[in-house]
Structures are given as C-alpha cells and as structure tokens.
Simulated scan of single mutants.
Amino acid sequence: MPDQGEFKRDTNYISDRITADGRDGWPVEPGRYRLVIARACPWANRASIVRRLLGLEEVLSMGLCGPTHDERSWTFDLDPGGRDPVLGIERLQEAFFARYPDYPRGITVPSIVDVPSGQVVTNDFKQITVDLSLEWGAYHRDGAPELYPEKLRDEIEDVAEKVFQDVNNGVYKAGFATSQEAYEEAYRALFARLDWLSERLAGQRYLVGDTITEADVRLFTTLVRFDAVYHGHFKCNREKLAEMPVLWAYARDLFQTPGFGDTIDFGQIKEHYYVVHRNVNPTGIVPVGPSESGWLTPHGREELGGRPFGDGTPPGLPPVGERVPALGS
C-alpha cells in the first residue's frame, strides 16, 4: 500500500528484561543499573513516575538527558562537563553502541543501562514500567501501591492499548502526518477517544478500579503535555485540555498526587518539541504560554471516592538532585 502520509512509529525495541530470576542474563540488583530519561519525553516520563511511586530511587539511579537532541541521540548536556556522572558518557548512543556497535535504530528514552559494562539493557518503555512493578518488588518502598494488580491486568491492557493507539501515539500521528487525509483521520480518532475517556472518567476517579494503576500513568503523560505542546504544535486543536472538564479535573487530580506533578518540567517539555521538530516548527521559537497556574487549582475528584494508593501511602519528596522547578519559575 502506498504511503498516505501517515506517521509510523518504530516499535522494535531491545526486548531484554531485568528480572528477579535473571532469566535474560540481567538479574535485579540494587545499584547495578541506571535508568536514563529525559524530562521532556512522555514515554520516559512514565518510567520516572513509576520509579517514584514504587520508591526505587535508592536502588535504581536515574540519569537525566537534556531536552533537545540531534539526529545522533540524546545528550547529557545538563550535567557538569556534559557527561553523565555515573556512566561517564556524553551521549546515550554510546551505551547502545557499547552493546551493539552497528545499532541501526533510534536511540530512545527511557533506557536502562548496565553500569558495570556501560551497555544498554533495554529501551522497551512499555515493559520497563511493568517490570518495575512485577520484578523489582523486593525493593519497593513500604506502602508502595500496586500499579499492575493481577486481577485487573487484562482491563488495564485493554484500556491502555486504546489510549496508546489513539491518544499517546495519536497526537504524534496528527502532528507528524504529511497529508491532510492522514492528519484528519488521526485528529478524529484522538478526540473520539478523549470523548470516550471523558465518559468513562465522569463516574469513576481512575481508569481501572478505584486506585491509581499503570493505565493512569500511561494516559497522564500525554494529558499533561496537551495544552503546552499538542494543542498547537501538533494541531490537536478541537479544544484544550483545560476546556474538557472531566479530563482536566482528572489530570489535575493526578498532577497534585505525589509522584506525578513532581516529575514534570514544562520548560523542558516545550523546549524539546518546539526546538527539535524543525519540520513542524521551522523557527525553533518556544512559546511562553500557556499559564501553568491552573494545575494546582482544586479538582473536586475526591467526591468520586477512590483511594489513590489503595492500602499504601504516598511517596516522600523526590531526592534533591531530581526535583523539578516550581510551576511558573
């Protein structure tokens, strides 16, 4: 079938897993691995949220790439000397090439790197967060929530797959479409799914069950970027998130929940999209707005019941070196 201007995401990732039994050769070990993310990236943001919620900061360190990159890879330009202080590399690409010298695909975040060898283990963003829940359980903090409960997994994956196709990836399908037809198809699918989500969430506080799950994490990272980036930059402009009452309240509820909003850096998010995507924004000018003040306003979602952490407790403050700027700063 000829190209119709549709955006096609490469979903072939390094599929090795870090597991409790080490069956892929990568056993769970405190201090052995480093999670590499960028604050700007929604896929990486998932991993930073789950790591926070589960309290894995002391056993799985985190490296932070800057918000922009070139065609070669993400860089550690936020660190002194432009090198990750643990891995000693300037580019995430170096960890991929350390394992696969001719690695042919994109260098993506999140990635987990084996510190002793300097080799990337996996960049499979979907499996990474699931395994943080299921395989790293011996090192979860006291009071960690159950984000991927067995009895709800089928429903979580069903909802999350719909969200991935039409929302998480849907905004990219709209933004990177190269034909009017492909753009409009993605646009319609996106807002039809957002309407579906609004109906689902009008009567329940969270997507699946009465506590936060993996499904909420996956949706949140797109919603939190919607008005700052996707509405204008990706032409997803039927309405802003702030004009969709149910989803706006739901997103604010999560943002104000420890582990969610404290991973968000709106400055880095905007810089990434508007500077890197020169095919979409040739000038590279980064917008000043929108205002961030609304994220901390009351949301009223407590009236729907639900217990954010189930029988668990909220995480404490992020480590000092991982704290994001206050809103509006």
Rank of each mutant, 00 (worst) to 15 (best):
R52L: 05
R52K: 13
L53P: 08
G55T: 00
G55F: 00
G55E: 01
E57W: 15
E57L: 07
E58A: 14
E58K: 13
E58T: 13
V59S: 06
V59R: 04
L60I: 13
L60V: 05
M62G: 11
M62V: 14
L64N: 09
C65F: 05
P67G: 07
T68M: 10
T68V: 15
H69N: 13
H69K: 14
H69W: 06
D70F: 12
E71T: 14
R72C: 03
R72I: 10
S73Q: 02
S73Y: 06
S73F: 04
W74H: 10
W74P: 08
W74R: 10
F76V: 03
F76W: 06
D77M: 00
D77A: 03
D77S: 05
D77W: 02
D77K: 04
L78T: 15
L78E: 15
D79C: 14
D79P: 05
P80K: 02
G81T: 00
G81H: 00
G82V: 09
R83F: 11
P85K: 00
P85H: 00
P85R: 00
V86M: 07
V86I: 14
L87H: 00
L87T: 00
G88F: 12
I89A: 12
E90F: 00
E90Y: 00
R91H: 13
L92D: 06
L92G: 10
L92C: 10
Q93R: 15
E94D: 15
A95W: 08
F96P: 08
F97T: 15
F97R: 14
R99A: 05
Y100F: 13
P101D: 08
P101R: 06
Y103P: 07
R105M: 12
G106F: 07
I107H: 14
I107L: 12
T108E: 06
P110A: 08
I112V: 15
V113H: 11
V113F: 02
P116Q: 01
P116W: 01
P116K: 01
S117E: 09
S117L: 05
Q119A: 14
V120H: 04
V120E: 02
V121G: 05
T122C: 02
N123A: 05
D124N: 13
F125E: 02
F125C: 09
F125H: 14
F125P: 01
K126G: 08
K126C: 04
I128N: 03
I128T: 09
T129H: 02
V130W: 08
V130C: 01
L132V: 06
S133W: 07
S133I: 05
L134M: 09
E135S: 05
E135R: 08
E135F: 04
G137M: 11
G137L: 03
A138F: 04
Y139L: 11
H140Q: 10
H140A: 07
